[in-house]
Amino acid sequence: MSDHQNLLAEQRRALILDEVRRRGGVRVNELTRRLNVSDMTIRRDLDVLARQGAVAKVHGGAVPVAETSSHEPGFEAKSALELGAKEEIARAAARMVAPGSAIALSGGTTTFALAGQLLDVPDLTVVTNSVRVADVFHTAQQVAAAREGRRGTATVVLTGGVRTPSDSLVGPVADQAIGSLHFDVLFLGVHGISVEAGLSTPNLAEAETNRRLMRSARRVVVVADHTKWGTVGLGSFGRLDEVDTVVTDGGLSDETRAEMAEHLPGLVVAGEEE
């Protein structure tokens, strides 16, 4: 490799390291698009950075070296990942919501995107353990009141509980509140989803709260972009056969798509709905 090529590789790895530290994690497919190089090149770069102790490799990408499957990035760091995919998933999931229904939205950046798509659904009751999701509806109600002299139509029930780094409310208070409620559909965000581990999260308290949400729902819809498939967090909270539908995006490989279709009762790929 020439000195010029060495310099390019060093610059590329410096950019990757900066992204890992700034955003709390990177995905291989994002880096290939941004840096206009092959998957193999990015994976070699990550191998080098991992050997140097600068990053820790995870399924599909890398995180800061101190982070493990028990690490939970903050909301802002996770919001920066797969923005387009999350918006596509949110639009597809919103079409599943009927006026006048009672739904639940778990914490997560994809459910946050979904909340923004539901503001015009009339007579909706929303149960959520996400401070961010609740803020979406609260802000919309304030705007509606200021413009039209009336309150918005959504009724929001915030569970209470202990706040996680991703602004979800979890723990015994949240679990007790959720246990007394019943809703038509739960839209559930996940850290990871796989055949072996099912649905998982880095936060053990959040795992228990998610279990309570699933028990209180007549129908469970997981909203997860393609990078979540094969990722495993510290705590599992649900099996794949407990999920009615997964809504994901078109970034799935053919192999992954076939595996998901084989193990999931229902699979919706945003943008490809019939």
Rank of each mutant, 00 (worst) to 15 (best):
V126C: 06
A93L: 06
A93F: 09
D135Y: 10
A102V: 11
R95D: 14
P122W: 09
N129T: 14
N129Y: 01
T109E: 02
T128L: 11
S130I: 05
M96L: 15
A90S: 14
N129F: 05
A115H: 06
T128W: 09
V131E: 10
T128P: 14
A113S: 13
S130R: 05
E88T: 11
V126P: 03
T125D: 11
A113P: 06
P122Y: 06
M96R: 15
V126E: 01
A90K: 11
A90M: 14
G107P: 00
A94L: 06
A94K: 08
G116W: 02
N129P: 08
D135Q: 14
A104M: 05
T128M: 12
N129R: 05
S130A: 15
T111V: 13
A113V: 00
G116I: 07
T110Y: 04
T125N: 07
A134Y: 02
T109H: 13
A104L: 09
A90Q: 13
S106V: 02
A90E: 12
A94N: 09
V97D: 13
G116M: 03
A102Y: 01
V97W: 10
T110S: 11
G100C: 01
D123H: 14
I89H: 12
S101N: 00
P122V: 11
T110H: 05
R132I: 13
R95W: 00
G116Q: 06
T125I: 05
T111R: 06
T111D: 10
R95M: 13
T111L: 08
S130V: 10
V127P: 04
N129A: 12
A98M: 11
L105K: 01
G107T: 10
E88Y: 00
T109N: 10
V131W: 03
A98K: 12
V131G: 01
A92Q: 04
S101Q: 09
S130W: 03
V121P: 02
V97P: 11
M96V: 01
P122F: 12
F112L: 15
V133G: 08
S130G: 03
T111G: 05
A104Y: 00
G108N: 11
V97K: 12
G107R: 02
V131M: 13
A104P: 09
V127W: 08
D123A: 15
A94F: 08
S130D: 06
R91I: 11
L124I: 03
I89C: 09
S101K: 08
V131A: 15
F112H: 15
T109M: 07
A92E: 14
P99C: 04
L118W: 07
A98I: 00
I103C: 04
A90D: 12
A134S: 14
A102N: 06
R132Y: 03
D120N: 13
R91G: 11
A104W: 01
V97Y: 09
A92F: 07
A94I: 07
L105N: 01
Q117H: 11
A90Y: 09
T109R: 08
A90I: 10
T110C: 05
L105C: 12
A90P: 10
T125A: 13
R95Q: 15
L118Q: 08
A115F: 01
R132D: 12
D120K: 15
D123E: 15
A93W: 07
V126D: 05
S130L: 04
A134L: 03
L105D: 02
L124D: 07
N129K: 02
A102I: 06
M96N: 06
V133T: 13
